[in-house]
């Protein structure tokens, strides 16, 4: 069980967090050759409400597919940060958007308080690529996946014609942490 690594992407419905989780898990499962399972939970809203997507990474079998002791938590809203930071384990990574999350939780975490949404909005010019900016940052923080493989996975899942936009979002996110 020691090699189990748990990632939770959280925020509001419509921020592309489920897709973000799918891309991350696919990059790991298909291109890194390590097991990864992705799950999600959501409310009835297609937009807004609380949304979370989880990726469990392991060298071994992943029996229980949900996160219980989170190693890396992404929060794109204050609500999600308030709700989910309790599941973050001691010494875990908290990746929070610096515009949306103003009140950070107390605790022994490695905190990355970064302009994820602003980078998407101002530097890429499309706020909807915030999930990909976040993926770039996660790729920079995770040992189990390379930026190249995340990019490969991104390009498989994003709509045609948005490839360069997403590539840029990903590398800008990566630069935020490296």
């Amino acid at each position: 069980m020691a090699d189990r690594y748990e990632v939770r992407l959280s925020g509001a419905g419509g921020q592309g967090l489920v897709l973000g989780g799918v891309i991350l898990a696919e990059a790991i499962a298909l291109f890194e050759g390590i097991n990864a399972v992705q799950t999600q939970s959501y409310g009835p809203e297609a937009r807004g409400g609380a949304s979370k997507s989880e990726v469990i990474i392991s060298d071994g079998d992943i029996d229980y597919p949900k996160a219980t002791k989170i190693d890396l938590l992404l929060c794109l809203t204050q609500e999600s940060c308030d709700k989910y930071s309790v599941d973050l384990k001691e010494g875990g990574i908290l990746l929070a958007d610096s515009r949306m999350v103003t009140k950070l939780p107390e605790g022994n975490y490695k905190v990355y308080h970064l302009p994820i949404i602003d980078t998407a909005k101002d530097k890429v010019g499309k706020v909807f690529v915030a999930n990909i900016v976040a993926l770039g940052a996660i790729a920079g923080l995770l040992k189990s996946v390379s930026l190249e493989n995340v990019e490969k996975a991104v390009l498989r899942r994003v709509p045609k014609g948005t490839e360069s936009l997403n590539r840029r979002a990903l590398s800008l996110g990566y630069e935020l942490v490296t």
Partner: peptide, 9 residues
Amino acid sequence: EIIGHMREK
């Protein structure tokens, strides 16, 4: 719902 929506290789 869990395995219906879960993704695996």
